[in-house]
Nucleic acid binder design. Structure first.
Length: 167
DNA sequence: CCCTGATTCGC
DNA sequence: GCGAATCAGG
């Protein structure tokens, strides 16, 4: 298939709508994403808010490093919250609150290590509030350590299946 | 390994 | 002009 006026027009539209090359290729049909990209370049279109990519190549925000004052040795291990429990865990609705104030650098021994935000982003922080014995503060502990799914599901079949996972 | 766009280069 | 192969990155 060649690039008819219609197809080129559609390509332009989709590209500037923010679709990825592969998505456009799939929608146009008969072309690969390489063909789409090649055409895009030839048309002089390029640079665009790409989804799923900050597209922030060049400058990489030179880690300013916060003031920091305490916690000379921050714990390395990052505890991860248990999020995969049974189906349906809507009840939990703490969320939001005050954004974490602790960074991986300022995170102290007795600070809540509940992750706030996307760890892949640079504004990622930890809850940072006081934590007791465990790694999390009172509130986040409740979220992290939910009872192993209360009632329901306790039949022989379920039990057998759940046990098999640990063999 | 999935994805993204960018570039090259034989056709 | 075209696009597969390849590159560079998240």
């Amino acid at each position: 298939m060649g690039w008819t006026d219609e197809r080129v027009e559609l390509l332009k539209k989709l590209w500037q709508d923010g679709l990825s090359a592969s998505q456009i290729a799939k929608q146009l049909g008969g072309v690969t994403r390489n063909a789409v990209i090649g055409k895009v370049h030839r048309l002089g279109l390029s640079g665009r808010a790409t989804p799923s990519k900050p597209a922030r190549t060049v400058f990489k925000a030179p880690r300013p490093a916060r003031p920091v004052s305490a916690a000379p040795s921050a714990p390395r291990r990052i505890a991860e919250p248990v999020s995969s429990l049974g189906p349906q865990t809507a009840p939990v609705r703490y969320v939001d609150e005050t954004p974490g104030t602790a960074t991986v650098l300022t995170l102290g021994a007795h600070m809540c290590k509940w992750p706030i935000g996307d760890p892949s982003l640079d504004n990622f922080t930890f809850c940072g509030r006081r934590s007791g014995e465990g790694p999390y503060c009172h509130e986040h502990s409740q979220v992290a350590y939910q009872p192993a799914q209360t009632k329901k599901r306790s039949g022989p079949a379920e039990l057998a299946r759940s046990l098999r996972r640990y063999i």
